[in-house]
């Protein structure tokens, strides 16, 4: 029987010898780096508190809002529910990594500005990373599919219709480039 209870897991001394930090190799926004992380440090906290990559936002810290969305090995995930130590060897792309080295905006970033697809801006990096991930996934064929595909990213300012427009603009720009 798989019994879950607090008594069998929370007991004992809290001072049990625990491993310290372990080295984790990550490629973040194209740059390879080795960082020492504790097992319980999330990818989100690693980015924000240790690497000063504060573009990735903490909205709920529980996978319920999408503000922390980053791309891990090309796929959009909630970095708040990702233990950094588990991602040894992975490639991470954050909002900072979407911007060109010369500061040029990614087409999705530009589209968000053009379409005024945000107000307070706090959910925005997560929205943009999520949108980039969604387009890669290849299921964003209609307005309804985009709305559904972006429903893991809450926006309390209510910019949803403009987010939809921005994604369509960026998508069209990408398609055009590919066609050319």
């Amino acid at each position: 029987m798989n019994a879950f209870s607090e008594s069998d897991t929370a007991g004992g001394s809290t001072m049990t010898a625990l491993p310290g930090k372990s080295p984790v190799k990550l490629t973040i926004n194209g740059e390879s780096t080795t960082v020492e992380v504790a097992p319980w440090t999330t990818l989100l906290d690693l980015l924000r508190e240790y690497l000063d990559l504060t573009g990735t936002k903490k909205g709920c810290d529980h996978g319920q809002c999408g503000s922390c969305t980053v791309l891990v090995d090309g796929k959009r995930v909630n970095s708040c529910l990702t233990l950094a130590i588990m991602k040894d060897g992975s490639e991470i792309t954050t909002i900072e990594g979407l911007t060109g080295k010369d500061g040029a905006l990614h087409p999705m970033q530009q589209a968000f500005v053009d379409c005024d697809a945000f107000q307070c801006g706090y959910c925005t990096p997560g929205q943009i990373c999520s949108a980039v991930g969604m387009i890669k996934e290849g299921h964003a064929h209609s307005d309804d599919e985009i709305r559904e595909g972006m429903s893991g990213n809450l926006c309390r300012c209510g910019a949803y219709p403009h987010i939809l427009n921005a994604i369509k603009q960026a998508y069209a720009a990408t398609e055009k480039r590919t066609a050319a």
């Binding site: 573009g55 990735t56 905006l105 970033q109 053009d114 945000f118 801006g121 990096p125």
Partner: peptide
């Protein structure tokens, strides 16, 4: 367009 737009979409 928002003058703070670029800062917000780049994480700056």
């Amino acid at each position: 367009s928002r003058v703070d737009g670029p800062a917000k979409v780049t994480g700056g």
